[in-house]
Write a protein that binds this DNA or RNA. Sequence first.
RNA 1: GCCGGAAGGC
Length: 237
Amino acid sequence: LTAHGVIISGFCKNGKLDKAIEAAENMVKSGLVPDQMILTAIMDVHFKSGNIKAGLDLYKEILARGFEPDAVTLSIIVDGLCKKGNLNEARDYLCREKANDFIYCPYIDAVCKEGNFSEIEKVLKEMSKVGFSLNKYFYTSWIAGLCQKGYLVEAFRVKRRMVEEGIELDLLTYSSIMFGLSSKGLMVEARQVFDDMLSSGIDPDFVVYDILFRGYRKQGNEAGILGVQDEMRNRGI
RNA sequence: GCCGGAAGGC
């Protein structure tokens, strides 16, 4: 069974849904029953390819087979619905016994991208009532949302709160902030955040440099552009 | 660290 699982999830990761389903059908033919992991993986592919209905149908099938939906299964559904903009529907899957803080992440992310920051405060209260604490991903999504909308002051406030709670910023947190700064043309500040990141021991990746690069290019800052290109070359990116 | 399933930056 595990061997089949490896094969099927491999197909799923490569987006070869048809082959994954084929493999699952072959399993059934040879008398094996796919377990929850296998079904969940296939469900995930449905959602990621935008086929919400197929995903939900498979979810029903999982229930019908007597599997208890666990946090992973639910979070895939929430993620799928959120990315399609069905936030209301997604909310139905949030407040369940099996929930963990992971489940909230895609929802928070979607709410942030909508710029619905009052909803965030609401969810925040709800989460703490149920006993979940905010994690890194929650904060990063929040910060990224604020930065994209240009609310940099708010973003820095959230960042400070994050640090106060002892949560470390990671590459994505930094790059979200840098994106916010550089899309407002605040390259000096963006560069400073970048240096902060380096001194906290985080290695930059292509995206981070690209953010700087675009910022400098928009300003026609030749020296900045060349500097970024040099650094990238030195790091082998 | 990974060794079958989920989330955040361009």
